[in-house]
Design a protein around this nucleic acid. Sequence first.
DNA 1: GCCGTTTTCGGCCCGACTGTTTTCAGTCG
Length: 569
Amino acid sequence: MKNSQIASILRELANYLEIEGENPFKIRAYKKAARVVESLGEEIEQMVKNREDLTKLPSIGKEIAAKIEEIVKTGRLQKLEELKRKIPPSLVELLSLEGLGAKKIKALYENLNITNYEELKEAALSHKIRELPGFGPKIEEKILKGLKLLKQEGFRFLYIEVEEVAKELKEYIKSFSLVDRVEVAGSFRRAKESIADLDIVVSTNSPKEVIDYFLEFKAIEEIIVAGETKGRVVLDNKLQVDLRAIKPLHFGAALHYFTGSQSHVVAIRQLALDMGLKINEYGVFKGEKIVASKSEDEVYGALNLAYIEPELRENRGEIEAAKSNRLPILIEQDDLRGDLHMHTIYSDGANSIEEMALAAKEMGYEYIAISDHYSTIALLKGLNPKKILKEFEEIDRLNSKLNISILKSLEVDILEDGSLAASDEILKRADIVVAAVHTKLRLSKKEQTKRVVRALLNRYVNILAHPMNRLIRKRDSIDIDFKEIFKVAKDNNIFLEINSQPTRLDLNDILAKEAKEMGVRFAISSDAHNIKELEFIKYGINQARRGWIEKKDVLNTLPLEELLEAIKR
DNA sequence: GCCGTTTTCGGCCCGACTGTTTTCAGTCG
């Protein structure tokens, strides 16, 4: 049972309790615990097997620990089953409608016996809902609208899918004369791999005018909120955008609040309370007096904390690190001197070696590695012994001609038994070897771990590409003992890839952080299949930063000579 | 339900907006 599955059961329980009218703080406790479980590097299932004490985890006490153990051991939760018998599951689904919370849903159920979307729609159309106390015609309208817009539960956009519109919105708002500053905050600013909605913070002395201007943006399909300082819309691609207009004096505090994450902000506010201060989106207050608000620097400073980069704000230890000045100095794109994973027309890429090299040179790189597929799958149009020797010869020729160093490499398939698709004879001719799993993704954890470990023990392998083999929104990670892989990587001088393809971003943030803590080092690579995709490297940098990765942790920040020295094993 | 160098009981982040009511509850992030 995966951590994410355990988390979703806890969350489901919280939803049922909410409908039941349970103590709101109890509900929050379950949701908080779900978040902790979800963002845990370690696997809960393993911890339970090892009889570790789950109450050592933050926000998990005796009750929830027992429930988690029940879930892991039996695959279900008695308490949840009971609630499901009592409350129709279709009723809980109604929570996903905008504007309908537990209290209203309960009232609809008790008074009109509404249990699902269909009955809700009927009641709204026949105007039965407006007659209930606390309800009215506007709510009927909102329900009907909501049913039409009905969001897929938990749907998130890829970062790359919102990047363009985020930029457009920022420029659109910036061009308004009454606007002082604009930032896209929220999970976008924290550079999460996927984004549920955009949060924009605007500094202005004329909030209302800015909101009105915002509501004129061309791609708006639906206006949900139109207040004095706050607007919320849904764009025609179904992306929700929130905008908050705030006076310049308060901009830093507001930016901090709207950048989140929620649990980072809550923890920061709690810390402030402990210090006798109070924080809201307008500033840090000592009594009635504002002591910090203009910049985020000020806000952190007021709490005696070093500035925390947005990518770190997940309440995963960054506040403690800031207290004791142990924050990492996060890697930046400019730190990279080369790119160690890309494809050409020798396999499934679209450009020649020379075109890739020239484009890389253009980006300021000193070296690249050409790592075409060496595979037994015909689909990947992979290399064979003859073809790769030809490719290496071409690289030799180009190296004497171009003003960038091209390393001979290959992305060699790890076969089911952990052997490699290319012979050692081939591998030893390469300057650097990237190994990857592409097939047999559903092996048991034990088999998968054994397989990859064997591959890493091959003395010619240097980098393990996309270790999770997940595709965001499409395919989960392979089932593998990452701790074991990290240990073997560390012991054998294997570098773990942070793959920059927007659907991969693999390793992810949590595992990268865990690997780093174990002393493993990384290669941040584009895995480009054409010259344009070389730019994807920025997404890999994002993910690496979220994983607390520093320049010194990354192989391709080294000058070529040092790199070649560093990969020796 | 969780948590605790002021606490094992009594707190729990905090404010905007909406729609319903005529001062506020519910919802949301």
